[in-house]
């Protein structure tokens, strides 16, 4: 199925937490400020419902997203209100992909863990947690994965200030 088909099907089965679809568009020639948007289409999902949404995507026969290809987050701007949590799903059976975006408020960055649905999410969530400070509620093993256990701060946030030293080692 293409993106339109997947979105229609998600609407039809009333997938939990589905907010809207966001598709790339060409710039409006009449409005000079509008530059359009390029790249992928994705669906926006309520953060609190992400895990149950993923479960539906995995279990629905026509979607059958068996593989969670990627789970990551992004901090769009320093003054943005929300983080994005982006999930890339892949269906081996139907050979289609789906990008899912959940918006997580920076003030209380919490989102249910998807590890119960896809075990592939486990390490990706650990990485997100240490890089962005997003808490994945219900994660079975919430330790740092790439950074040292005592690393302070969340490096991929836009407001991150690089430390001058780590355990007596100069980082300059």
């Amino acid at each position: 199925m293409d993106f339109q088909g997947i979105h229609d099907h998600l609407r039809a089965i009333e997938a939990p937490g589905l907010v809207r679809a966001d598709e790339p568009r060409l710039p409006n020639p009449e409005d000079k400020k509008d530059k359009g948007r390029s790249g992928d289409a994705y669906v926006v999902v309520e953060a609190a419902q992400l895990a149950s949404f993923l479960r539906v995507c995995r279990d629905d026969e026509r979607l059958a997203f068996e593989i969670l290809a990627d789970l990551t987050a992004a901090d769009p701007a320093k003054d943005a209100e929300e983080f994005w949590v982006i999930v890339q799903l892949l269906s081996v059976q139907h050979r289609h992909r789906l990008a899912i975006k959940a918006l997580v408020p920076k003030a209380s960055a919490r989102i249910p863990s998807a590890t119960g649905v896809y075990r592939a999410a486990q390490w990706h969530e650990r990485e997100c947690a240490e890089m962005f400070g997003i808490e994945f509620v219900g994660h079975p093993d919430p330790r740092n994965i790439l950074l040292p256990d005592d690393w302070e701060g969340y490096p991929l946030r836009k407001d991150y200030v690089f430390p001058t030293e780590y355990r007596g080692i100069s980082c300059q």
């Binding site: 948007r37 390029s38 992928d40 290809a69 990627d70 769009p76 982006i86 890339q88 892949l90």
Partner: peptide, 25 residues
């Protein structure tokens, strides 16, 4: 690069290599 976001997964020798790039223009 125009504003937008894109994920491209290709078949690397070890599996799917995904690049997710976000641009603000």
């Amino acid at each position: 690069v125009p504003e937008g976001e894109a994920y491209v997964g290709i078949e690397n020798p070890r599996g799917e290599l995904g690049h997710y790039a976000v641009s603000d223009g």
